[in-house]
Simulated scan of single mutants.
Amino acid sequence: MDILIGSKNPTKVDAVKKVFPNVDVKAVNVPSLVSEQPFSDEETREGAINRAKNCLTDHSGALSIGLEGGVMYVDGQLFLCNWGALITAEGKTHTASGARIALPSIIDQQLKQGVELGVIMDEYAKKQGVRNKEGAIGIFTNELVSRQSMFEHVVMLLKGQWEYNQNH
């Protein structure tokens, strides 16, 4: 069995490899077809589904996974959110969401000005490539939760749904 992951971002690819350790995982650079910075649960979920679907354009017979990070509001407070989608070779789609954490108001202000979260986080943390390493969740949890481990949890939810549906 092969698994296609709709991103070459190392945190996403490594999350899939960790949850599916004995499977050939191939990273495919595909578009999410949503805005560069998704601003709702719905848009972030749609981006994950689109990434999984777009993996299958040139490949068939494989599982495909799309992972997407975004932000969303709850009672006026901005939160980090993330979604994943797994599409089977037969076309069945499973989706799942993971951890959420409130973001500081300074982040909210910059996002509203059109700056993407990855760019903001590099400046905020005074680091390079935060989106490819610890992610915003790593910064704001004092690295107790990394971007990879957050996506691993989402991939576990997807894998569990897929396995359950194979047996029922």
Rank of each mutant, 00 (worst) to 15 (best):
Ala136Gln: 02
Ile106Trp: 08
Ser105Gln: 12
Leu158Ser: 00
Glu36His: 11
Gln166Lys: 09
Ala136Phe: 01
Thr57Asn: 13
Glu116Phe: 04
Gly6Glu: 06
Val115Thr: 13
Asp41Glu: 13
Leu111Gly: 02
Thr93Gly: 00
Arg51Asp: 07
Tyr73Cys: 00
Arg131Glu: 06
Arg131Val: 12
Met156Glu: 12
Ala102Phe: 11
Phe20Cys: 08
Val25Arg: 02
Asp108Cys: 05
Tyr164Met: 12
Ile101Gln: 07
Val13Trp: 11
Glu46Asn: 11
Ala125Leu: 14
Lys126Phe: 04
Glu68Lys: 14
Gly135Asp: 12
Ser105Leu: 06
Glu68Tyr: 13
Ala96Asn: 01
Lys12Phe: 09
Met1Phe: 02
Glu90Thr: 14
Glu46Trp: 03
Ile107Glu: 00
Gln77Lys: 14
Ile87Asn: 02
Ala15His: 01
Cys81Pro: 05
Arg100Ile: 03
Gln128Thr: 10
Gln128Leu: 06
Ser97Cys: 14
His94Met: 12
Glu36Asn: 08
Phe20Thr: 10
Leu67Ala: 08
Asp108Thr: 06
Gly69Met: 03
Arg100Ser: 12
Ser7Asp: 03
Gly76Met: 14
Val23Arg: 10
Gly129Asp: 09
Leu111Ala: 03
Pro104Glu: 02
Asn9Val: 10
Lys53Phe: 04
Pro31Phe: 08
Leu63Asn: 00
Met1Trp: 03
Leu78Ile: 14
Ala99Lys: 07
Glu68Ile: 15
Lys126Thr: 09
Val16Lys: 04
